[in-house]
Each structure stands twice: as C-alpha cells, then as structure tokens.
C-alpha cells in the first residue's frame, strides 16, 4: 500500500509545478492522482463552454415547508446530549458580486466527535454516538446568513493510502440564485496538522484558495459557558442573470 510519504511527495511535486506555471487556480483540480479515486472519475476533455440559458438561470426554490428551523441544531435530534465540543458555525452565502443568497437551502453532514459517520460503509472502529446523527439543514436569511449548532467533528482514517487521515471537516451543500452556482464543498478548522497530508484538501493546488475552505474561530460567536464559535463565509460563482429583487412566487412561497 502506498505510504503517506509517497502521497506527500506527489502532492508537493504537483504544487511545485503549479507554482512554476504562474496561472492562478481557484478551484480543485479534477485530475488529481494523489486522490486515488479521482483517477478514473475525472473528465479528460476540457469542459465545454456554455452560456447559461433559461432553466439554468434559475434555481430551485425551497421554503419553510421544506426545512424545519430545528434542523439547524444538530445537538437536539435525539433524547440526550451528544458527546464532544459543542460549537456554532455561522456565516453568509454570497454570490461573486457579494450579493446575499437569500432564503436558499444549505445542507451539512459530518462525522461525530470521534470521527465516525452514521453510514453503513464507515468502518472506522470509533464509537457511534446515539445522540448524534450529523445532518443539518437551514435556509439562509434575508442577508444570506446561515447558522448551525453542532459538535466539532473528529478527524477520521480512510483508505486512500496507508495511515491516511482526513482533517476534521463539515460537508456543505449549497444552492445559489441560479443552477450554475450549485456547489458541494467542505469546511475545515484552522491550524489542522493534517492539511499538508490530505489529498482531498490539496486537490486545491493554490494555498490562498485552500484557505477559503478554512473557518475562522470567532470569540464573538462563542457563547458564555455554552459553545465555541466559528465563522465561515461562502462565495458562490457570479450569477449571470441580471439581478432582480426576489419576486413573489406564483403561489405560496412560504418564506416570509
């Protein structure tokens, strides 16, 4: 099995190549061999330029029918308190022009404090927490703001190579004001010693771009004798549609 030293050498060589190229990259590489599962799963042809049309200039609409406000609190989904560091993650979703993405769906999922997912394919021999599922949803507010209360996830091992560990992270799924802005990403925690070793985090070859995936500890979000606080703002790609104030839906958009 490939060693961490081999993977780290591959990561280092790719980043050195990138720095020599002088062309800035802001998104992950699709072809990133140190992440072994990507080898047969990346398109080899250039993505084809398309001007977004009609349906692509709109996004699905989610309302309070879809999401219960309690779904934003991952610590109250069971009868008891989950184990781990209680924390709040909050921030804003904006488009490339800095405009808030209002009343739009944010979904998250994560491992528990021990680094274990409630997923039948997670074989990590760390304990499940009967009081923690690790799924949250919310709608952004009128300013694009989101807020989850959860438990800080632990790092976990995976099978990319020998002794491979993922830095602690929360998966985020986001919609924009148009379908071309749809994205899924991962939020990380500042100062994680696993960053340099992780071929998924490193699929983003640019150091500044990688830092955009890292939340900031914010003592103003931290609350007295209750929970630590992290802030993470998310920028979606610029929208192509001429900006309009949100229009009333044809019928009962229930997001007042």
């Amino acid at each position: 099995m490939t060693s961490q030293a081999d993977i780290t050498a591959e990561i280092t060589a790719i980043e050195a190549d990138y720095q020599r190229s002088g062309v800035e990259e802001t998104q992950p590489r699709r072809d990133y061999p140190p992440y072994r599962s990507s080898i047969l799963r990346h398109p080899t042809k250039d993505l084809h330029h398309a001007d977004p049309e009609t349906i692509e200039l709109w996004a699905p609409c989610f309302g309070h029918r879809d999401v219960d406000p309690l779904e934003a609190d991952l610590t109250i989904q069971h009868s008891g308190e989950p184990i781990g560091e209680r924390m709040v993650v909050t921030g804003r979703v904006v488009d490339g022009e800095g405009r808030p993405v209002r009343h739009q769906l944010v979904e998250i999922w994560q491992a528990n404090a021990g680094g274990r997912y409630i997923h039948k394919r997670d074989q990590h021999p760390a304990p499940l927490d009967p009081n923690f599922t690790g799924i949250g949803r919310c709608l952004t507010d009128a300013d694009g703001g989101y807020r989850f209360q959860t438990i800080k996830p632990g790092p976990y091992p995976w099978k990319n190579h020998h002794n491979a560990w993922r830095p602690a992270h929360i998966h985020f799924s986001l919609f924009g004001t148009e379908f071309t802005q749809r994205m899924v990403t991962q939020m990380y925690f500042p100062g994680d010693p696993l960053f340099a070793l992780d071929p998924i985090y490193q699929t983003v070859t640019d150091a500044k771009a990688r830092e955009r995936l890292v939340a900031t500890y914010d003592h103003d979000v931290t609350s007295h004798e209750w929970a630590t606080g992290y802030r993470w703002d998310i920028v979606l790609t610029g929208s192509h549609r001429t900006y309009m104030e949100p229009q009333p839906a044809s019928t009962d958009r229930d997001d007042a």
């Binding site: 802001t26 992950p28 490339g96 022009e97 997923h119 998966h171 994205m183 899924v184 998924i200 955009r212």
Partner: peptide, 20 residues
C-alpha cells in the same frame, strides 16, 4: 466588486445518510 468563489470539494463517500 468581484469575489473569488469558494473552492468546491468532493461529495465524498458518506453523503447517503444526508443528501437523499
């Protein structure tokens, strides 16, 4: 104002209990 978009990341292997 033009901001640089946040990078995407893989959906990973463990989305099945969350997204469906």
């Amino acid at each position: 104002m033009t901001l640089t978009p946040t990078p995407g990341q893989t959906v990973g292997p463990f989305f099945h209990y969350a997204l469906p």
